[in-house]
Amino acid sequence: MPAEEPPTTASQEAARLAAFDSLIAADQRIEPTDWMPPAYRKALVRQMSQHAHSEIIGMQPEGNWITRAPSLKRKAILMAKVQDEAGHGLYLYSAAETLGTTRDEMLDALHSGKAKYSSIFNYLAPSWADMGSIGWLVDGAAIANQVPLCRASYGPYGRAMVRICKEESFHQRQGFEILLALMNGTDEQQAMAQESVNRWYAPALMMFGPPDAESPNSRQSMAWKIKRFSNDELRQRFVDMIVPQAEILGITLPDPDLRWNEERGHHDFGELDWAEFHAVLHGNGQANALRLAKRRAAHAEGEWVREAARAYAERTATSERMAS
């Protein structure tokens, strides 16, 4: 816990930093009670809470389709998936709490608009096919981002990510299968799938963050082994993964510049619209206001329930004390 630390001499400070650096260099994990540089703690809280917020806000676009899922099997799968997202938010909040920030503080930051979450959830999901695109592309990009995080240098983060990655293995597949069913279906269903992928492709690629040259926090995070690969490396890896998958689906990825580059051994792809990325990041997306309003409303409407449970717990604890 980051309680008031006693003043230290410069040499003590240097020794602690050296111990921390050598743990990182040896690929050891940092645990909650270890000393860590304040900037490392801050970077972790920022990344982990942002990640948790993304899970929670990410429940909304899919939650909106639970009542309309076109088959009971799809309804069950979607419920289980959205429920997993709540669970993953919980794992991540818990992991972040080991750094001395409470969940209430993190939620306050989310509700006040101070904290960020993944911009991808500020796009609308007006079509059933979006359940497919979100699973295949959005969860696919998230998994590409997350798998290396299982080895993040901060122990609780890595452990939470191990659990999350295991559970998410079905998320991308179910999305792919939604699209596969649509592409094997009627003309209307195929058009629905293609239209949806057209909307989600570029935003999904932008989920890896701005190009390395413009990503100020990345370099430090990589030095601390919170992040293991750069934004552009992960983006390239993702494009290389989805191209053959799109072929299996028979779906066209909406990028005229997308082609295999023999020399690089990778796919080249077109320039992304980073002005759009920054606009959404700064609140001008389709759904920024909606997502936050719905989240705030759920929290505010739950206040009396949380308060009731707390009052009941206090009262029973008191009466037990008096009885003993």
């Binding site: 919980l90 794992y91 818990s94 709490e97 969940r103 452990r159 939470a160 449970a309 009941y312 717990a313």
Partner: peptide, 11 residues
Amino acid sequence: AGSLHAPDAEL
């Protein structure tokens, strides 16, 4: 396994 928030032990 991890942690969580709850008002009391039963919940």
